[in-house]
Design a protein around this nucleic acid. Structure first.
Lengths: 192, 192
DNA sequence: GTAGTGTTTGGATTATAGTCCTAAATTACC
DNA sequence: GGTAATTTAGGACTATAATCCAAACACTAC
């Protein structure tokens, strides 16, 4: 059972998570979080002394939910190709959010990479988690040597497509892009 | 001849341009700009009443210098393939800056797209300028129908590679990525 | 039921941001 | 050379941010 305190903390993390995504980390204020989470002004400092701490909690939360998601995929999806395509699928499924606010992982990294190196290190973990999982799939698919490079290439393709689709507010570009990635993956499988 | 006032304004724009790139727009303060440009605190408001205005001036400046650069390329480089490869070349040449601060155009758009729609419109012009020029090259190369799509694809590839290279601080990935783009362009040329 | 720890409040405090003002200095023009 | 317009200059002002505080409340263990 969860205590009330734990639920409050979770409400804060959820609110911060949303706001960091929609407005960016730096443009999100404590006031924003407090309003969204509906906790009284001063209370938030009981849970997070600084904004950095809050961001780390948000990243931790994202890592946890992603871990669960990937583990489920590992269990429920049998072939590495299908798993990779499932990964691409979330891009397609998230079209509205991606057009509005970009990639939650990519845009956070781009923002923090500018001149907040300590926080950047934390945000990078999000990429690492996907990168390692993707590499495993490529490895299983028959590309153990190229696995890392292929995983980075897949991530890069996704990031690029999302940036351009967002700039041009073009869901079609996102759709064609994901289709093209799937073709690429299927060819890799074919010639493995 | 340039007046002292014009030179001061240019110094401000240059300083803002640099800072917006290195620290991001939102994290750059007037104080930062004032210090970097070495103009007295209050003087800056004689030139730019608001930060938005300053950003627009920076974007205008970037558009102007880019226009000049592309016009020069048009003049000095004969074939569309060579022009496209020249474009890719600047990515490779800018490796250190890209690893440090990302793509000046991409990161600005990603930042402003979050929740500053008015400014986002201005930043988008930077992409437009390249997009139109790239499309022209693809058109000349023999792909008039697909020109726009190919230009977006090229931009997307570039953006993706830069994001990943920055996240992983991996100049090699950037190098291999640009090489791969060149191969793709040469194949397009071959089968035009 | 009382002590003690954990939690909740709202407002106070401090720092920093953006913006404005006014007077002095400089430049441009008749 | 003198007057008007432009530019400089530094500090004042306001808004908003992050952070802290101390008193109240609530729950748990004895």
């Amino acid at each position: 059972m969860t205590t009330k305190s734990e639920r409050t903390q979770q409400r804060i993390i959820d609110a911060a998570n949303q706001l960091f995504y929609k407005k960016g980390y730096n443009r999100t204020s404590f006031t924003d979080v407090v309003d969204e989470a509906e906790v009284p002004r001063g209370n938030i400092y009981y849970y997070f002394k600084t904004k950095e701490e809050m961001l780390r909690a948000v990243i931790k939360h994202r890592l946890e939910t992603t871990t669960v998601m990937l583990a489920e995929w590992d269990k429920s999806i049998k072939t590495p190709l299908d798993r990779l395509e499932r990964f691409i699928q979330i891009m397609y499924d998230s079209t509205p959010a991606l057009l509005r606010s970009g990639c939650p992982m990519g845009s956070l990294n781009v923002e923090l990479a500018k001149d907040q190196p300590e926080l950047k290190g934390d945000a990078k973990q999000l990429f690492d988690m996907f990168q390692v999982w993707l590499a495993k799939q490529f490895s299983l698919m028959g590309y153990p040597e190229e696995a890392r490079e292929l995983s980075l290439e897949l991530l890069a393709r996704g990031q690029g497509i999302i940036v351009i689709a967002q700039v041009y507010q073009d869901p079609g570009f996102l759709e064609r892009g994901t289709k093209e990635i799937n073709r690429w993956l299927e060819n890799l499988e074919r010639y493995a």
